[in-house]
Simulated assay, not measured.
Amino acid sequence: MALKDWSTVAGNNNAAPPNGAPEGWAPSAVNNTIREIMAQVRGWFQDPMWINLGLLYEFVSTTSFKISGVDETARYPVGRRVRAVGVATGTIYGRITGSVFATDTTVTVVWDSGALSNETLQVSLGVVSKGKPIAYNDIDMTGQVILLTGIENIAESRIVGRAAGAGTGSPQALTPAQASAIVNAGGSVSQLLTEVDVTGATYTFILTNAQNSIIKANRATAQTFTVPDNATTAFPIYSVIPIYQYGAGQVTIAAAGGVTIRTPETLKARKQYSQMALTKIATDEWILTGDLELA
């Protein structure tokens, strides 16, 4: 018996071992049942993004199937991803476009490719569903790219997060227009960097330089960029400040008192158009990497 065949009502899981745990079962059957549970749970982890509810799915048409006698529309909402498997059908994936209940629940799907065949089907639901967003509330995703390979219609999905600079409060769902603005053709969520054009001979980094910015060193003569101590400017740990030397003037990175900058070479850009990055790794400790002048 598979995991999908077990009941959510504890007392109904009373089939003969190892498929269940009936009253008065022999002690010798306990280990077999535990092993079966372990195998089924481990088997689920082989394919954790899809849930097979163990229902009987009947063919209706090449784009629809039904579940007889029960209302399952709540679990099959419009927009949810599904996977169908059959001998002739093969394995196909699609998105629900209709879900209605009369005597049966009839589900209509737009398939990515392929079609249903008139046969016994196994249908699984995608774990990520419309109206149940994944919210990265407690993960610092600054400077990261989040791949959203399962979202094919941004108007029917939600991206949730806090506004820039808002460290507290409930995450808010972006509008379809906002979400579409940051979803590129490759299916990833990213935030464009804001260029900070520095033309002076000296510059001290500020907090916003590590918030989706890139420093353009734009001077014909030498420039020195200083990393302030944590007491002056409290950059979060793992803040990253990217810099590129656009002008002819060589860029040197300097440390304020109490700050240590680790580097595999020197604290200077190698030549014009070199790019570097500063990463904060401790309270007053940074590491400089990139196209650096050799030591």
Rank of each mutant, 00 (worst) to 15 (best):
S274T: 08
T252D: 02
I146P: 00
F45T: 15
T175C: 07
S170C: 01
T175Y: 03
L53F: 12
G257P: 01
A277H: 04
T63E: 06
T233E: 15
A164T: 10
N118D: 05
L193Q: 10
L3W: 09
T149Q: 14
V227T: 02
S274H: 05
G79Y: 01
I281M: 09
E195N: 11
I139K: 10
V198I: 13
E293H: 07
Q46L: 13
G90V: 12
T89I: 03
V196S: 14
A163Q: 08
L53H: 13
K216H: 12
A222M: 02
I134L: 10
G165I: 05
R219C: 04
I253E: 01
G69R: 05
G258I: 04
V107Q: 06
A163N: 05
I287T: 15
Y93R: 10
T199E: 11
A277K: 12
W25D: 15
Q223S: 03
A248G: 10
G79T: 10
V145I: 15
E265A: 05
T226N: 06
T149M: 05
N14H: 11
T91L: 00
Q172P: 02
R262G: 03
A115S: 15
S61E: 03
V145Y: 06
V109R: 00
T202R: 09
F101P: 03
V189C: 01
K4Y: 07
T168Q: 10
T103I: 09
S64Q: 14
A102T: 10
T63V: 09
A185Q: 12
G98H: 11
K216T: 10
S180R: 11
T106L: 08
